[in-house]
Design a protein around this nucleic acid. Sequence first.
RNA 1: UGACCUAUGGUGUAAUUGGCAACACGUCUGAUUUUGGUUCAGAAGAGUUCAGGUUCGAGCCCUGAUAGGUCAACCA
Length: 567
Amino acid sequence: MNADNLKEKEESRPSISFIEQFIAEDIKEGKNGGAIVTRFPPEPNGYLHIGHAKAICLDFGMANKFGGKCNLRFDDTNPVKEDVEYVDSIKEDIRWLGFDWDEREFYASDYFGKLYNFACDLIKKGFAYVDDQSAELISTQKGTPSQPGTESPFRNRRVEENIDLFERMNKGEFDEGSRVLRAKVDMTSSNMHMRDPIIYRIIKSPHHRTGSIWMVYPMYDFAHGQSDYFEGVTHSLCTLEFEVHRPLYDWFIDRLKKDDYRPRQIEFNRLNLTYTMMSKRKLLELVRKNRVKGWDDPRMPTLCGLRRRGYTPEAIKRFVDLIGYTKVEAINDVSLLEHAVREDLNLKTARVFGVLNPLKVIITNYPEGQVENVELVNNPEDENMGKRMVPFSREVYIEQDDFMETPPNKFFRLAPGMEVRLKGAYIIKCEGFKKNDKTGAIEEVYCTYDADTKSGGNMSEKKVKGTLHWVSSAHAIDAEVRLYDRLFINEDPAGEKDDDWLNFLNPDSLKILTGCKVEPSLRSAKPLDKFQFQRLGYFCVDYDSNEPNLVFNRTVSLKDTWSKINR
RNA sequence: UGACCUAUGGUGUAAUUGGCAACACGUCUGAUUUUGGUUCAGAAGAGUUCAGGUUCGAGCCCUGAUAGGUCAACCA
């Protein structure tokens, strides 16, 4: 597939999400004067992962599609969980994906004043009250989904008393947990969120942006919709679990809005990936318990982890495009993500020679000390990527897997008496090998080469079934390669148990291979450069290496039909 | 026991709004290939959760089941 085909394919994609249809209808009906404003509202309490990428692509994508704008808004209403470290990383990751919020960077904390005033307004109109009860008592009074709640004895406090108490809550006169502000909605509602939801609580920890000027902080439900309103957001896209919050969202907007404009909440399905655990809480736990080296550990499904692993933003966006947005709780197959990565990297990456498990081959009839440079195409998919010269000599390394003493049927590589081509160089024939008597390991393979079969030469039409990658032993650079097998966990998230999820971590998700040999052209490779090691997969140069040599992370393996045949 | 949401090949999504169920991934064949990659050609695989109803005609509308999910944090 070339770039044009890909473009064609993308354009031919027929699906239009229900969200797109909703927005198109709203425009048609002239709602909000035809304006389209969306927002991406992360809480700065962790790093962004691939699930967020789905939301980001939608929020920015819909704005772009309809000529609108997308705001970046940090939902920082809970100071005990949040930190500037996360703010910075979130911005970096969104930019990496290729989206820009220009100057529209907002914080829910920017609206603390407005929200406070709105809360006072609700109190004055009899729509909110201070409750002195304990969390436990409030909780039991809420009832259950099938049984209505009962009203708090403080529900009908006088307005003046409520205002006074709320002000004093904010001055720090009361302990955390001693009082809350609740909206007066309906304790008998079938929707639990409407049973006089708590809208303000006392928190005395300093906020990462506002310091200690506030002692009361709004809850999500009291901040999100209003923030949307303050910013002129028209379409507030969020995940399915917020569906039951929508009546409350609308309830607050009804009491806040002063004109025809109103934001609309639309829910879509969250991303679930097989073998992948994406709960922010659990990712944080992995980092804290040092089960991974950090948020950007290449095993992490975080955007920075995937980046370090060698994923491209284009591949991630393509994947998101392929899975679509619906209201079905879907579990997407990682193989589709991996497909998207291969599709993108196949076009972009230079092919290089690297041998993961070296086995020395000695070409007995090749002159000792002779070195010749053979010419190789960097990327058969893209001529513009040019060619390179790779040194060839009497001793080369091939992959251990590429030699078998007693080969099975359909084995097209090297075995006693068999001929293969060393890619870009000569056809060689296996004449013998040295085996360790004790371990049975093959230590060296002896071959002869046919000088007339050099690539590009006259006799080069001679056909052999197999072509091997190789690295000249005298010129090879030692490298370390980290192989990643799937992202994370062995079982699908559906089967995941909450208590012992750490045991689901795939022990094979990181294998480190040392002593790998790579061709000398890689000496100039820079961190995050990506390559395709012939027949082995796509690899990305790591930036977190204490070793003097190159370290590669395997991005994704190639489709390997041989191992399937072998199975 | 309640409210809300959802149900289409193995997986994820479509179906011009009521007109022969299509696409992608995956799987399997074959061809080309100096990557067992890529590319190309082709195949198998669902009759749309079930039962009724409306209609000339239903994946789509109606009724009722069934299954799964969400909701009872001073988290977002």
